[in-house]
Design a protein around this nucleic acid. Structure first.
Lengths: 345, 345
DNA sequence: TTGTAGGCGTTATCAC
DNA sequence: GTGATAACGCCTACAA
């Protein structure tokens, strides 16, 4: 390795554009590699003047340590991976923001992978994630494929499944009951006098759980059963508009609609206004999520609030605790939900 | 390392929950580590029956190779990092989706970091990213801090700045001119007869560039200057509603509003309807982005379309090409924009 | 306070 | 077709 020094200011260039290594920095500072390592990781263990020389060398070379090498040696990547169905739409953003923030504060980085609601791709992605040996993995939803569950367990990496409950988590879990939501919304609407209620819903597993509970409760109360209008991801206002149309075509008597997300609910609200249905006078609308749009809509939307921030923060804490050798208890948390009443019902 | 074999089905467990290494797999398969490596990376170079034995051992152990080790050895992480101001809001999602898709197809993974529009945090994040030695880095916007630019250049990692143009890119660039957008929207509204136009705008650098060009064009046409209503991130419908109120309080004669994003525009549209202003009869509204909501709104929103998918795809191709030793030309691309006329103007 | 030796898990290279 | 050896860049353990 050759090092070129410019006459006045020491500007260094590594050959072949290869970044400098700790060895290069050590040579320039006139110390050993170990001393550079210490200067970077535990400066208090290095003599003040040595520290100065090392820091100069680091600055001159723009040296940034190679995390693959240090991670390999330390068996810690200082990395947490999150697996999401999608980044599109506000649904998981609150959780991701909170997760990222909490991890950043503890000097961990977040790596995000999108599975696109595709089970095959989910397994792919899991393998790719495990390869990096992150210190923790957050999964949105529960891992359904047996292969994925095995791979996760065998990896020995702390895992948090989120956004859902299950009797058989891979490891830790922070979620809530979609079945309870379905039931609670029926009860809420029923109490407010509605008898003809239906759903505009996504068709993923969690959505189907809500639909099932909703239908069961409707049946239990002896109310008329109206088939839900299913939408495909991503959940957009457009899907919400079409979903409501479909529902009304199916049964014009519908007086209350529970939408799978606030975006769908907003779309339904727009569609209702468009066709001259007063909200909530002639049609009550309930959303899910409470990620900002619900409160800002006109009329403001009643919605099932999920505290994504809490999920993200809790998950981060649990993962970091385990990554640092601690144990976490309880390792399964139901964060619940609440119905936020606004003017759409 | 001890290996426990169960009598009937070979279930293996590694001690201390440490994942198996390629050595363990080799021992179980009765071959050398090199052969396992070959079986995984270039199966055609391994005898068929050896391959079978290796694959069995891999399956039994749930072995997943350690990407830190192979990345270190190969000096390729098969990783691309993207630096975003925020994940909240639909603005960059199209780009990220396309980037992720394109990278996934070529067996690269995407790592995402959020800087939260904070320059200090951006430098932090850049360092954290460089540590991982990704094969490419996508930056949203241009890197403004001199320190960040130096660090990036010194790293030797291919970089694409996006979503903006600059005369001095760090490396490659895929963007468009925010100044041209400001000018074009003024011209568009002017042609349609508007004389009192104003902006509801974010306050980041790119937004300010649009505001400046907008104001200059307004002045050049001899139209009345109306100060913009600034909003803070994230861009929500609520901000849009408040922004429009502010604007109308400032100058009730406003007949056309250009909003910094479709979400703001949607909020403005809701607010207009709320206070009894007909859109577009009494107030024309133009958004920016065209990420779905614009088309689904009522009335559908005229908007400045940015092809985020194209940015993401192009950036991925450029980064991968460079990562694999190719050269990219042109290395600076202006993807332009277009005004999509709908019913809000 | 600083340095030396060795190894983390993988793969390039060369020998067989 | 397969294996032995060394090296990627860093840090733990130990020695001076």
């Amino acid at each position: 390795m050759t090092i070129r020094l410019c006459p006045f200011q020491s500007i260094l260039s590594s050959p072949g554009n290869k970044p400098f290594t700790i060895q290069d920095v050590a040579r320039i500072a006139g110390v050993s590699a170990m001393t550079v390592s210490r200067a970077l990781n535990s400066p208090q263990k290095v003599a003040p003047d040595t520290l100065v020389r090392v820091r100069q060398a680091v600055a001159q070379t723009n040296f940034v340590p190679n995390a693959m090498a240090s991670g390999l040696r330390r068996s810690r990547a200082r990395l947490v991976a999150a697996l999401l169905p999608t980044l599109v739409g506000p649904v998981f953003q609150e959780m991701i923001e909170a997760l990222d923030r909490a991890l950043h504060d503890q000097d961990y980085q977040l790596m995000i992978g999108q599975s696109g609601y595709d089970p095959a791709r989910e397994d792919d992605l899991l393998r790719a994630i495990i390869q990096r040996r992150p210190d923790g993995i957050l999964v949105t939803g529960v891992v359904r494929s047996e292969e994925g569950r095995r791979a996760l367990r065998a990896s020995g990496i702390p895992v948090v499944e989120t956004w859902e409950l299950t009797a058989t988590p891979v490891d830790m879990l922070v979620g809530f009951s979609h079945a309870q939501i379905g039931t609670a919304v029926v009860d809420y609407l029923h109490q407010r006098g509605h008898r003809h209620m239906a759903m505009v819903s996504g068709d993923d597993q969690r959505a189907l759980t809500r639909v099932k509970a909703f239908d069961e409760r409707v049946a239990a109360l002896g109310l008329p059963k109206i088939a839900p209008a299913f939408t495909r991801p991503p959940s957009t206002m457009g899907s919400g508009r079409r979903g409501l149309s479909e529902l009304l075509a199916r049964d014009p008597q519908v007086t209350a609609v529970f939408c799978s997300s606030d975006m769908l609910a907003l779309g339904a609200s727009i569609e209702a206004r468009e066709i001259g249905l007063d909200v909530p006078g002639q049609l009550a609308i309930v959303g899910l999520g409470d990620q900002g749009v619900a409160a800002d809509a006109s009329p403001p939307l009643t919605t099932v609030r999920i505290d994504g921030t809490k999920i993200g923060r809790l998950a981060a804490d649990m993962l970091v605790a385990r990554a640092e050798g601690g144990s976490v208890s309880p390792s399964v948390v139901d964060i619940g939900f609440s119905i936020v009443q606004r003017l759409s019902t």
